[in-house]
C-alpha cells in the first residue's frame, strides 16, 4: 500500500469524527503561520516576565546617559543637528544588551525540555529558529523605537537631515539583528544562559574590534596580508559607520544579512546535531 492511499483512508476515517482531527490531518500547510505563532509566543514570553521592562528601561537609560553626557556623547556640546552622539554608542550597548536579550532563546527551551514539544509539532526547525529570532528582533526594534525622544530633541533644537536619521536607525537595527543571530547561535550551544551570554559577548566583541588598529597591528607583523584583510573584513564597524554617513551600500546590507543568515544557519546545525546525539 502506498503512503498516499494509506493516508487518504486515514483522512476518510478521521474526518467525520471531529473537526479538529480533520483540520490537523488535511488542513493546508502554511509555514508562515507557524513562524507567526512562535513569534507571538516569544514576544508574550518577554512581556510576561519583568525581564522585558527591565531591559527596556536599562537600554533607554544607558542610551540617554551616553548620548547626553558631556564627557561621552556630548550631544549638546557638539552644537550640530545630528544623531552622531547617539548612534556612536550603539555597538557598545548592543555588545551587552543583545546577548542578554538573546541568551534565553534556545537555552531556556533546552533547560525546560520544551524543545522536545516544539520540534515534535508539525513545525520545521527552520520555522522555529526564524520565529524565535524575529520575535527577539522585533523586541530590539521596539527598544530602538522607544529612543524617539532623541529624534524629537534634535528636531526641536535644529534642522537635522531626516534621511540620515532613518539610515542611522536602519544600520543600528541591522547591527542588532547581527548580534542577535550570534546570540541565537550561542544560545543553542548550551542550556546554561550565562555561558550563552558570555560566548555571545566575546564573539560580538570580536565583530566590533576586528578592524580596530591595535588588533590589526597585532596581526600585521606575522600574519599574511590576506589573513589581516580577512579579519578586518569581519568587522561590523565600517559597515555600521557607512549607515551613519547616510550611505546605504549594497555591500553593507549584504554584510549584515550574511552575518544574520550565518548565525541562524549555525543555530540550525547545532540544534540538528543535538537531536542526532
Amino acid at each position: 500500500m502506498s503512503a498516499q492511499s494509506e493516508a487518504s483512508t486515514l483522512d476518510a476515517a478521521t474526518a467525520p469524527k471531529s473537526a479538529a482531527a480533520f483540520a490537523a490531518a488535511s488542513g493546508e500547510y502554511r509555514p508562515w503561520r507557524n513562524v507567526w505563532a512562535i513569534v507571538k509566543r516569544e514576544l508574550g514570553g518577554y512581556f510576561a516576565s519583568p525581564v522585558a521592562y527591565v531591559f527596556l528601561v536599562i537600554f533607554l537609560v544607558l542610551v540617554g546617559f551616553f548620548t547626553f553626557n558631556r564627557n561621552l556623547g556630548g550631544f549638546f556640546e557638539r552644537g550640530e543637528a545630528s544623531l552622531f552622539a547617539f548612534f556612536v554608542w550603539h555597538p557598545w550597548l548592543y555588545l551587552f544588551l543583545v546577548p542578554a536579550a538573546g541568551m534565553r532563546l534556545w537555552a531556556e527551551e533546552r533547560r525546560l525540555g520544551t524543545i522536545e514539544l516544539l520540534l515534535t509539532m508539525p513545525v520545521t526547525s527552520t520555522q522555529a529558529i526564524l520565529g524565535k529570532f524575529l520575535a527577539s528582533w522585533f523586541f530590539l526594534a521596539l527598544a530602538l523605537a522607544l529612543t524617539f525622544p532623541v529624534v524629537i530633541t534634535v528636531s526641536y533644537l535644529g534642522d537635522p537631515d531626516g534621511g540620515l536619521i532613518v539610515c542611522g536607525y536602519l544600520g543600528s537595527f541591522l547591527m542588532a539583528g547581527s548580534f542577535l543571530a550570534v546570540s541565537s547561535m550561542t544560545s543553542a550551544m548550551t542550556r546554561n544562559q550565562v555561558i550563552s551570554f558570555i560566548l555571545s559577548l566575546v564573539i560580538c566583541l570580536f565583530l566590533i574590534l576586528a578592524g580596530w588598529a591595535p588588533v590589526q597591528n597585532m596581526l600585521v607583523g606575522w600574519a599574511p596580508a590576506w589573513l589581516v584583510d580577512l579579519v578586518a573584513s569581519f568587522s561590523v564597524m565600517p559597515h555600521f559607520a557607512a549607515f551613519q554617513r547616510g550611505v546605504i551600500d549594497l555591500g553593507d546590507l549584504v554584510y549584515f544579512l550574511c552575518v544574520i543568515a550565518f548565525g541562524l544557519f549555525v543555530t540550525g546545525v547545532i540544534i540538528r546535531s543535538h537531536r542526532a546525539g
Binding site: A24, R41, G44, A48, L117
Partner: peptide
C-alpha cells in the same frame, strides 16, 4: 514527553492556544 515540559512563563490557556495554532487550528 517525559516530565511533561511546558513553557513556564505562559498561562495554561495561552499554552494550549499556542499549541493549537502550531497544530494548524
Amino acid at each position: 514527553p517525559e516530565n511533561a515540559p511546558a513553557y513556564a512563563d505562559m498561562t495554561v490557556w495561552g499554552f494550549l492556544n499556542f499549541v493549537a495554532e502550531l497544530r494548524g487550528l
